[in-house]
């Protein structure tokens, strides 16, 4: 209507599609470039020392140089985060599936979940070390403790959100509990399950790094950060931060992508 370029209005479908994608990509790109420029400028202007805040260009070049090691360490951290999420998510989802029909049970587990969400998980890290050893076991346990309540709450609310009419419809088909669960409650729970997953993958990554920071091998991002930070090797620390961010964002995007694909029938995903 008010589009200035008439070519865009009448252009082929692909062009408009591209135009829409550009609207999503270009602003963040501009912000990114501006932020990097500002960062360099601030260091230049205030003469900030290297060990406090290194230049982005410096971080970038060391990142490229150390890429092989960083990706190896990142993979170890990712493995801990993934296994912890699998364990915690599994427990959370299972508890939600077991309790969602019984109000008092769901509420009881829900209170534990609420308490667990308020608990500063990192404070539990030393204790999990005592119980599950200083290596991967304790880290997986900490990630599981952090992610289980999130997935429990989201899955529970999702399972409960099944439309009352649809439930009666399933009843009218004389569908059993199992069939109703898979054909009705699970599809209804999916949108919220994915919202929970998006939160949980991010949390899993952070918690994995924090618990690695508490001790154990150096062959992971948290351990590397601990070691380099103690030696005030700030540039090295930052390369690990960049790697952690990249992994976190790609995990988030993978989950978001699966969400979009699986829920392409859902109203909230159409035309976005």
């Amino acid at each position: 209507m008010t589009t200035a370029d008439p070519a865009l209005e009448s252009g082929p479908e692909q062009l408009r599609q591209w135009n829409r994608h550009a609207g999503v990509v270009i602003p963040p790109l501009l912000v990114f470039i501006a932020a990097i420029a500002l960062w360099e400028l601030v260091i230049e202007a205030f003469d900030i020392q290297r060990f406090l805040l290194p230049r982005p260009s410096e971080i970038a070049s060391l990142f490229v140089e150390d890429f092989g090691r960083l990706i190896r360490q990142g993979r170890n951290t990712l493995g801990v985060a993934g296994r912890g999420l699998l364990l915690g998510g599994g427990i959370g989802i299972a508890l939600a599936a077991i309790t969602f029909r019984t109000r008092w049970m769901a509420e009881g587990v829900g209170i534990y979940a609420a308490v667990l969400k308020a608990v500063p998980v990192i404070s539990l890290a030393p204790l999990t070390v005592v119980w599950f050893g200083i290596e991967a076991g304790s880290k997986i346990a900490t990630v599981a403790i952090a992610t289980a309540p999130i997935l429990f709450t989201y899955t529970l609310v999702g399972l409960r959100s099944a439309d009352a009419n649809a439930q009666e419809l399933m009843r009218s088909y004389a569908a059993g509990h199992v069939r109703t669960f898979w054909n009705l409650h699970v599809p209804y729970a999916l949108p919220l399950f994915f919202s929970g997953m998006k939160i949980a993958v991010t949390i899993a990554m952070i918690v994995a790094i924090i618990s690695e920071y508490f001790g154990g091998s150096f062959e992971n991002l948290g351990g590397y950060i601990r070691n380099e930070a103690n030696n005030v090797h700030t540039v090295e620390v930052w390369t690990a931060i960049v790697m952690a961010c990249l992994l976190g964002i790609s995990q988030y995007m993978i989950v978001a992508g699966i969400d979009r694909y699986v829920l392409r029938w859902h109203p909230s995903k159409r035309g976005g």
Binding site: V31, F32, L53, M205, I206, I210, Y213, G248
Partner: peptide
């Protein structure tokens, strides 16, 4: 919103332990 939102989501994954010492 479009410019900043991805970074706000991304920055959540910044391991705070790494920045805290600095």
């Amino acid at each position: 919103g479009r410019g900043i939102m991805p970074f706000v989501i991304g920055a959540q994954t910044v391991p705070i332990v790494a920045i805290a010492p600095a």
